[in-house]
């Protein structure tokens, strides 16, 4: 059965994610040497960057699932879009929280309205709105369609937002803060970053599968209630 197979997959992914996270923590706090100028706070980099990567991947999956949903109308794709957006928002929040913590001691400021930061914030706002829409749409035949439209529109908007902010900021030059990405990263650092990325990816996959399983179980429970001709209890 599909549900059981997914459940097993979620368990396996969780186990792998555990292992990968332990490995990543070892790399970050023990293996990698202290960065000379930034000190200990630089270690947040190993959580910040992989989270950003994973959140972007999550929103991309939400976009693909939404698009595929509109063409196939399969319930599974609607669930995948929702689960992916939820997890994406969590990782994106991590990015937005760890960013300023890292920035304050290094740049001396919490926040700057440069293209990358601003786009991340707008991205977060778009997907929080997406989840809010899902919460406020009544359960019915329109819900999945409408959510999918926003899932697609929101993602397509991201490059447009990024380009316009970058363009605007180059008109009014702001201090260039981030150097070329990953430039001059020492080998132990890039190794650690790679491990952290794998760990985050594993965590993402485990969470995604788990979330999908929960939603499918919910469907199953409702189905059983209906078969038995009993009204399912109100869910908040």
């Amino acid at each position: 059965m599909r549900l059981e197979r997914l459940h097993t997959a979620a368990n396996v992914a969780t186990a792998i994610a555990w292992g990968a996270i332990v490995w990543a923590l070892y790399m970050v706090f023990h293996f990698v040497p202290m960065e000379r100028t930034m000190g200990n706070v630089q270690r947040i980099f190993y959580f910040h960057v992989p989270s950003a990567m994973v959140s972007f991947l999550a929103f991309f999956i939400c976009f693909l699932a939404s698009l595929a949903y509109l063409f196939t109308r399969r319930r599974g794709l609607d669930i995948a879009a929702q689960a992916s957006a939820e997890i994406g928002v969590v990782f994106c929040s991590v990015v937005l929280i760890t960013g300023p913590i890292w920035a304050k001691p290094i740049w001396g400021i919490w926040w700057t309205w440069d293209a990358r930061l601003t786009t991340t914030l707008v991205l977060w706002l778009i997907y929080v709105a997406y989840l809010m829409l899902r919460a406020y749409l009544p359960e019915g035949s329109r819900k999945a369609n409408l959510a999918a439209v926003v899932g697609i529109l929101g993602f397509l908007d991201v490059p447009v937002v990024y380009m316009s902010i970058r363009w605007w900021r180059t008109q009014h030059p702001a201090p260039v803060i981030m150097g070329g990405k990953g430039s001059g990263l020492a080998p132990p650092m890039s190794q650690t970053l790679r491990v952290c990325m794998i760990a985050m990816l594993c965590l993402f996959i485990a969470l995604l599968l788990r979330r999908i399983v929960v939603e499918l179980l919910q469907d199953e429970v409702d189905h059983l209630y209906r078969e038995a001709d009993v009204a399912p209890p109100e869910r908040g």
Binding site: V122, L137, I165
Partner: peptide, 28 residues
């Protein structure tokens, strides 16, 4: 987006929440 938010409870709130992040490029 108005056609979408018209289907929700709280549509007066839902529309600006959906619209403003998306139209950032136009506002800029």
């Amino acid at each position: 987006l108005a056609a979408i938010s018209a289907n929700t409870r709280l549509r007066e709130v839902m529309l600006p929440v959906l619209l403003f992040p998306i139209i950032v490029p136009v506002i800029i």
